[in-house]
């Protein structure tokens, strides 16, 4: 089964991501977000970065994590190519990743994502692992 797929929404777009573990789910959700914003096959893994996000519960943690990734792309102009490691510690998610500085010629935007939202947000354990549905405001 694919790591993620896009979902339909009248005004916006969303995705359903899966992972065998919560760690993998968070990585695949971030990859889904990046693929909405630009073409991930054009991003090279040149430089390392570490990012983190906190949340009071799993839903908040996932939304804040995705908004942290969005900040990296849109605010710091750095695009992740590969999430090397991801771990949870006391309500905070940490990740070491590789990517490169955003270059609009090399990475033309597909859609400008405003934010990951709580709208119809779902994070659940399934028979085969973990699954989340997230809608993005675009």
């Amino acid at each position: 089964m694919a790591n993620f797929e896009l979902l339909e929404h009248t005004a916006d777009t969303g995705f359903r991501a899966r992972g065998e573990t919560p760690e993998e789910l968070f990585i695949h959700a971030a990859e889904a977000l990046i693929s909405v914003a630009l073409d991930p096959s054009r991003v090279d893994a040149f430089q390392p970065r570490q990012i983190s996000a906190s949340g009071a519960d799993q839903q908040e943690l996932l939304v804040n994590w995705l908004n942290e990734v969005l900040w990296l792309i849109d605010g710091e102009k750095f695009v992740p190519a590969r999430f090397e490691t991801l771990w949870f510690e006391d309500g905070t998610v940490f990740s070491q990743l590789l990517g490169e500085r955003r270059d609009d010629t090399k990475h033309p935007p597909r859609i400008v994502v405003k934010a990951a939202t709580f709208h119809q947000l779902r994070v659940a354990e399934t028979e085969s692992g973990w699954e989340a549905e997230v809608y993005l405001d675009i």
Binding site: E8, H9, T10, A11, D12, T13, I111
Partner: peptide, 8 residues
């Protein structure tokens, strides 16, 4: 007011 999703 939108009727169709962007993908549709």
């Amino acid at each position: 007011g939108r009727l169709l999703s962007r993908n549709a």
